[in-house]
Design a protein around this nucleic acid. Structure first.
Lengths: 187, 187
DNA sequence: AATATAACTAAGCAAGAGCTTAGGAAAGAT
DNA sequence: ATCTTTCCTAAGCTCTTGCTTAGTTATATT
């Protein structure tokens, strides 16, 4: 017995995500969001509660967007090679132009590192933990490994992946390829 | 024939630098700056022209602060070992508490990556180039190296260093050590 | 058709941003 | 002591921020 929404939340949030991805949280204003999403502030706030609400939903949307390559990593059966492919897939996502560069999760982790925002930090930690566990799982498929070396290597790869995402915003394709090649040269 | 300044620019800029280092550019307001620097906005603007002026001067101040470890790197004579030491020195700078974590240059590079601000981007590129050239120089001191591999390795180390600075904000000491150890394991 | 409920528009709110300015205070030159 | 030049205080300027609200429009139910 009432009027229907003229937009779908899943659709407008995608536009929001791209904006946050490109500019970060603070540099994206609610006015910019309403233009990009094609809805006005009232609708935004009634659908997502707050700017932070839009942002958290954007992160979920992003996770959905990259779920494909994460599943690919998870289902890979060639150990360390699967992780290497994951690295290449990651920068490929952001190199189809018109897409922002870098990784939204990593960008966010950086922007909020010192702020200590709880809801956002939690999202990031959760995501990072998932990736690390997959790395460990894949590394376990490899040759002789004592547990300690395994953790060491997982930490290395996790930070390397994070570094890659950051580097992708600034460095060129050749530099990134050089980086990945040497990262995996001795596994 | 006039009144004298009640502060020294070199002293107040250090406080500004710490604030920018901790919060980034956008999240640091002029009101916060005047409290931290102990001078009011009039003095700030008459000494540095604008908020961005304060920021650019803060970066110079930061470069001065880390010049020690860069000179140490430059003067090292044990090739790749010198670079490894440089990595450890870099995270040491930010692990004496009361200092912000990460690297101001890297933070800035990240924050302004998509903005395309000219003055700031130029500062970053200049600094990055210097580091890369030192890396190449140190790598040249090592064993047999064709030029191409050398560039590849320099790119690797440059991105690895950048990744380390980012990681230092989020990861613990053990993870960082693991990362550095494996980064340099096969040189 | 009348009514109730939800969604839209657009205007506006307080707070904070970067920056400016008028007026007084300090100190070297005369 | 006076004058002149510089510096400091404090208030205020305009613009933008995240968010709200009054008033209107559209739709499902009766």
């Amino acid at each position: 017995m009432a009027r229907r929404k003229e937009y779908k939340e899943e659709e407008v949030i995608e536009k929001a995500m791209e904006l946050f991805w490109r500019n970060g949280y603070e540099s994206t204003s609610v006015r910019m969001l309403e233009k990009a999403m094609g809805i006005n502030q009232f609708s935004m706030y009634s659908s997502f509660g707050s700017k932070q609400g839009v942002f958290l939903e954007s992160i979920k949307c992003y996770e959905g967007k990259i779920q494909g390559i994460i599943e690919k990593l998870r289902n890979s059966t060639n150990g360390i090679e699967g992780i290497k492919t994951f690295f290449y897939d990651s920068i490929k996502t952001s190199s189809d132009c018109n897409n922002p560069k870098g990784c939204l999760i990593t960008n966010t982790s950086n922007e909020f590192a010192e702020s200590g925002d709880k809801a956002i930090t939690e999202q990031i930690v959760r995501f990072t933990t998932v990736i690390k566990e997959i790395f460990i799982e894949k590394l376990r498929e490899g040759d002789i490994k004592d547990e300690e070396l395994l953790i060491k290597q997982a930490n290395y790869l996790l930070i390397a992946k994070q570094g890659l995402s950051v580097a992708a915003k600034v460095f060129g394709q050749k530099e990134l390829n050089d980086y990945i090649e040497i990262t995996f040269r001795d596994f």
